[in-house]
Structure formats: C-alpha cells, structure tokens
Design a protein around this nucleic acid. Structure first.
Lengths: 218, 218
DNA sequence: TATACTTTGTGACAAAAGTAACAAACGTTG
DNA sequence: CAACGTTTGTTACTTTTGTCACAAAGTATA
C-alpha cells in the first residue's frame, strides 16, 4: 500500500535524479540516454532505472536508449515541476531564511509567497523581497490564496501548533524541518526532514568506523 | 547487504526518533516507556519498535516496558551521540550558515570546527565564532586535526571538487547537501540530503492531489 | 541481407522490510 | 496465591523492493 498513484515510493524518489541528468544531457545536445548512463549517475543498476521508467509507460528504443528531451519533458510533467506551486514558510530563523532563498526550489516551480514568525522583532523584516508576517494572518491568507504547501522551520515545541494552523488554512502538504512528529488529519501529507536524526544515524557510522579502524582490543 | 554493522538501515534511522522520545520522557520522570508509546510517537507500530530494539540486545521487561533512562543511555552510546565528532563545512552560503548555527547538531555531539569557502569576499568573515578559511587550507587542516566529517553546502557544479579535497584530507564521512552525485573511494561514506529532489517528489503529490480533488473529466 | 552489437522491457527470483500473532514474563488486585 | 490485564521477544508470514537474465527490438557494418 506504499504505492503512490501506481508508482512505488522509492522509484518516485529516484525520478528527480534521473530528471536532473536528463536535463544536463539535453543541454549538452545528447539526443539519447541509456539506462546504464542514468543508472551510473544515480548510483543504481541499469535494470533499476528501466524498471522505474517502466512504471511511467514511457518507452525507450532498444539499441538506442531513451529520447533525452522527450523523457525529460515527460518526467517534468509527471512530477509537476513546470506547474507553479505556492508555499508559505513559518519560522524565519537561519534555516527558514536559507530555504526561502534556496535557488533550487524556484527551478522546480516552488514559490514561497509568504513568511511568518511569532517573534515580533522579525515581523516586518524582509527576506528576499518577502515581508515577514505575524502568525495571526496565516490561516486567512492560506485560505484566500489556496496555498498548496506549508514549510515548517520552527523549533520543535512550536511545530505542532504551526501545523494545526496550516491545516486550518486548508494546506494539504506540509514539509516539516522541525525534529518532531506532527499529528494531522489523514488527508494531509507530512514529509519530515529530520536533520538531527540523520546526523544521529551518521554518528553511528562514524563511531563504528573508528572502532573498526582502531586496533582490536580482544 | 544494506545492513549496517548488524542493524538494518531503516531501523537505524528510527533509533534517533525513539531516543528523542525517551529523553523527553526521562525529563518528565517517567521511569518506563512501552513499545506502544514509542511507536505512537514515531508513527510506527509497536511491533516495529520491539523488532528494532531487539537488534540492539537491550531488553525491556514484559508487562512494564523499557527502562527510560537505561534505554536512552544505551541508544546514546550506540549512536555515539555523547562522543564529540568534529566536522568541517564547505560553502558558507545561506544553507551553510544555517547548518553551522543549527542548535540541534551540538546536542548530538557534532562540532563544526572550521568553515571554508571559495569566495574571497567571504574569507575572513565569521559565522558563530568561526572564521571562514580559504579552500587551500582544507586538506592540511583536515589531516592535522583528523576531522571525521565533511559537510558540503556548495552549488552542485563545485561539489565533486570539494568532496575530492575532503577525501584527500582523510575525511571518511561526507554529508552532502548539493543536489548531485559524488564519486568517492569505497571506504568513504556519502550521505546526500537532496532537498530539490525531495521537493520534486512532493511536487508529484501536490499535482496528483489537485487532480483528484478536481471534478472528474471523463 | 546476414551478422554482430546494443539496449530495452519484463517476468522470475531474491532480499529486505514491515506486520501480525502468540507464548512467556511480569505486575496487580482481590 | 490465583486470576487477570499488560507488555515483551520472537517466529512466521506478507508485502515491498531490488536484482538478474533473457527474448525481442533496434542499429551498424560488411
């Protein structure tokens, strides 16, 4: 049941990687790209690439490969990268500012149209042309503008409250950078980016690595 | 082969979530925590929690649960959170600055001890007490201080070069925030945080959602 | 056209991850 | 201390994901 409208989640998450390589090859005027090529760039076997693409029912040509532009275009459409997607961001700290100004998002159609913070000192400041608004304006603004995504970059203790406000505002997709669990209605999708947890997992690797490299004690 | 020294990767990545909840419960003086409790907080079934913990050979008490402090302490040790881990960060843009100042990292033992950038205008600036150094000092500094981790927050076209320099400096774990693939020797671990790709996958959900919500056309 | 290469799409298989179920262990209560 | 409810550790099972292998389809070359 982890399928996402017909395509397995891990496959879906590899598609943007393929897409990126296709764009690069298109810029270099390479007319066809093979699954082997795509796989090497993405760090997966060629068979994985072919299987992933087979879910899309976009076919390549045996002996040749996939039409670079056609496949890039199809992936762009499938992922909805060309469509404009509007988001609001709550929590104008360092991370919030960084995401607001991150150039990669605009390339994929994401427009962060409003910023919010609870800190009165930050309200009225501007970050890349956008003014920081007070929290009480969030629900109404999200409703009026039919905002599609909410980005949370507040400390964990405030995240649930922010998420609930977003839900009240009709937001259906939340991208959460606070290291905590959010409780939302089932129709709302939450994707959490837990950097502290990722670090903790990496930390384990670092520990094990140094243990392995150190002389054995037994 | 996706095992990481005996524990499956997905399990390893859930451990920090459990750890966080245990710390919270320990602060509230709760002596025991059940797998059900941990599972609800982490968004996984209780049986999953028990299976994850069973890999660690740390046992709970039937009818009671897991000793909060003991398990938190064990996870802390297993994940190596108490040990100091030193990192250097390359790319003092908005994201680099945000990560440098991110309070969650210090809590998990990560010290970003040096910053690097290629931009002469940034060299000499300070970010949270740390001065930005020129790139040519990277390899030597990493070697001398036996730096364990490298964090890459440069644009994708510069990332491979940075990664290679880190490898030359003896760094064995790279945390890559640039949206591109890095080629490194097999003994070096690369963990990529590809925000643009995550966004693209989310984008697909947003598209599908609005399609589903819209009135059917056929 | 025949032959030798490439590369695809897919079906069979293997591995990994997640779920469910249950006996055994423990505490509590009357 | 017996009966009951709770919670664990583990086994068996299901689902998901990834890999392999190969026929079929295409290209290139002589």
């Amino acid at each position: 049941m982890s399928e996402t409208y017909g395509i397995p989640r891990p496959s879906l998450r590899r598609l943007p990687i393929y897409y990126r390589h296709l764009i690069e090859m298109a810029e270099r005027q390479v007319p066809y790209v093979s699954s082997k090529d795509l796989g090497q760039n993405a760090g997966v076997p060629a068979s994985q690439v072919r299987k992933d693409l087979s879910y899309l029912h976009e076919y390549g040509r045996p002996g040749v490969g996939y039409d670079t532009k056609a496949l890039a275009g199809y992936l762009e459409e499938f992922l909805g990268l060309a469509n404009d997607k509007e988001a609001i961001l709550v929590g104008v700290g360092n991370l919030g500012r960084a995401l607001t100004l991150y150039p990669g998002f605009a390339q994929y159609g994401l427009q962060i149209i409003a910023l919010f913070d609870i800190d009165p000192a930050k309200i009225g400041q501007t970050v890349g042309d956008r003014e920081v608004l007070p929290m009480f304006k969030l629900v109404d603004l999200a409703r009026r503008l039919k905002v599609q995504m909410g980005i949370i970059t507040v400390p964990p203790h405030a995240a649930q409250e922010v998420a609930s406000a977003m839900v009240s505002g009709g937001i259906k997709v939340i991208w959460n950078f606070a290291p905590c669990k959010l409780t939302v209605p089932a129709e709302v999708l939450v994707k959490s980016e837990d950097l502290a947890a990722e670090l903790a997992a990496l930390s384990h690797h670092i520990m094990r690595r140094s243990q392995v490299l150190a002389p054995a004690t037994e």
